[in-house]
C-alpha cells in the first residue's frame, strides 16, 4: 500500500522571542503569548529560504533511508514563499538530490496546506503505478508584515516525505479534502506581505475546513478519535489546533508530539509536515496517526496513517536530526538582527 518511505525535516537555528517583537511594537507581550500560546519562533539565516529548507529536508530523508534518487520520478514543493515568482523550487531540489533529469516537478501554492496537497499528488502518482517514488515537501519562510498580528508567529522550516509503496514506514490508509472559496488570508501578486480577515480566518476559515475534512476522514475510515495514537492539526498558533482537537474529541496527549508551534511558530506550508515528522521521530509500529492540514483560501486535507514495522528496520531515524533536536539547537536574535535576516531592512 502507498505510504511514507522515509522523511526528513529542517528547522533553522535562529529564534526570536515573541516578547522581543512585542517590545518593538509597543504591544503587551503577555497578552499576545497568552492569546496565541506561542513563545518564540524560528528565523531563517541570511542565506536560507524555502528552497534551501526543502533541499536539507529531502537530503535528511535520503540519509535515513538510502534510495536511488534516479527512482524518484516526481518532486513537488508546497510553499507560499517560493524564492522565484517564475522558476520552480522543485527542480532545484531535484538537482540537489540527484533526481534530475528524468522526473516531473512542479511548485504548489495553497497557503499553509500546499505541502499536504503535494503528498496527495504523490500518492496518486505512486498508487496509479506511474512511478515508484515521488517526493512531497512543505516548506516556508513565512511572511508577516512588520507589526501585524502575523509577525508574532510567521516562522521558518519544512519537511519532506518520500511517497512509495515499497515497504513504507507508515501506510497512508486514506485521504480526503474539504475546500471552498473563502478569502480569509491572501497575498496579491507583487505584494511583499499577506493580508488577512482577522477573526474571519478562525471561523469560517480554519475551523469550518478543519472540521469538514477531519469529520469526513473519520466517517470514511469508520474510526473515532480514540482509535489514534497521535493527531496533528495545522497550527497557526497553539490555540486553534488545541480547540479543534478538543471539539473533535482528541486529547491533549494525542496532539502533544506534533504540536511544535509554541516554540517554533507557524511555518505555514511546513507546519503540518513538520508536526508529522516530529510524530514519526517517536512513533512505533502500529501507531495510528490522524492528520489535518489547513490552507487559507481555503481548504483542509486529512490523512489516516498507520505506522508499520518498517520504521524499525528499514530506516535509521538517528542518521538525521529529529524535529525536537533541531528545536533545541537555537540561538536567539533581537528584532534588529531578525529584521536583517528576514530582509525587512531595505537599502
Amino acid at each position: 500500500m502507498v505510504g511514507i518511505i522515509t522523511y526528513g525535516a529542517y528547522i533553522p537555528r535562529f529564534r526570536i522571542k515573541i516578547e522581543e517583537i512585542a517590545r518593538v511594537w509597543g504591544a503587551n507581550s503577555a497578552e499576545i503569548t497568552g492569546g496565541l500560546g506561542v513563545f518564540e519562533k524560528s528565523v531563517p539565516d541570511y542565506d536560507e529560504n524555502a528552497a534551501t529548507f526543502s533541499v536539507e529536508a529531502a537530503r535528511s530523508a535520503l540519509l535515513r533511508r538510502p534510495v536511488d534518487p534516479a527512482e524518484i520520478k516526481a518532486v513537488y514543493v508546497g510553499s507560499e514563499s517560493h524564492p522565484y515568482a517564475v522558476k520552480p523550487t522543485s527542480v532545484t531540489v531535484g538537482e540537489a538530490i540527484g533526481a534530475t533529469p528524468v522526473m516531473t516537478a512542479a511548485d504548489y501554492e495553497f497557503a499553509c496546506k500546499a505541502g499536504t496537497a503535494a503528498i496527495q499528488t504523490a500518492m496518486g502518482l505512486v498508487s496509479s503505478g506511474m512511478m515508484k517514488y515521488a517526493l512531497a515537501i512543505g516548506s516556508d519562510t513565512a511572511q508577516g508584515a512588520p507589526g501585524d498580528a502575523l509577525e508574532y508567529t510567521a516562522a521558518a522550516g519544512g519537511a519532506a516525505f518520500l511517497i512509495g509503496n515499497d515497504d513504507p514506514i507508515a501506510v497512508i490508509n486514506d485521504t480526503c479534502s474539504y475546500s471552498t472559496d473563502t478569502p480569509d488570508f491572501w497575498r496579491r501578486e507583487g505584494e511583499t506581505y499577506p493580508k488577512h480577515g482577522g477573526r474571519f480566518s478562525g471561523d469560517p476559515g480554519y475551523f469550518k475546513h478543519v472540521f469538514g475534512a477531519a469529520k469526513m476522514m473519520l466517517e470514511i475510515c469508520g474510526t473515532k478519535p480514540s482509535d489514534y495514537t497521535y493527531a496533528v492539526f495545522h497550527q497557526p498558533n497553539a490555540k486553534f489546533p488545541q480547540k479543534a482537537a478538543q471539539q473533535l474529541g482528541f486529547t491533549p496527549a494525542q496532539i502533544k508530539a506534533g504540536l511544535l508551534v509554541p516554540y517554533l511558530g507557524n511555518t505555514y506550508s511546513g507546519a503540518v509536515p513538520l508536526g508529522l515528522s516530529a510524530i514519526l521521530d517517536v512513533a512505533k509500529p502500529g501507531d495510528r496517526i490522524f492528520v489535518t492540514s489547513y490552507g487559507s483560501g481555503a481548504g483542509s486535507d486529512a490523512f489516516d496513517i498507520t505506522v508499520t514495522d518498517a520504521i524499525l528496520d528499514k530506516i535509521d531515524r538517528s542518521r538525521a536530526p529529529s524535529a525536537q533536536q533541531m528545536l533545541a539547537q537555537k540561538k536567539y536574535v533581537d528584532y534588529a538582527v531578525y529584521a536583517r535576516h528576514k530582509g525587512k531592512i531595505r537599502m
Binding site: 539565516d45 542565506d47 536560507e48 529560504n49 528552497a51 534551501t52 533541499v55 536539507e56 537530503r59 524564492p83 522565484y84 532545484t92 540537489a96
Partner: peptide, 16 residues
Amino acid sequence: VFRVLDCDGPDGVIHY
C-alpha cells in the same frame, strides 16, 4: 549544507 551563495541582484538569478 545547501545555501544561497549570492544573488544576481533583486531581479536576477539566485545562485545556490
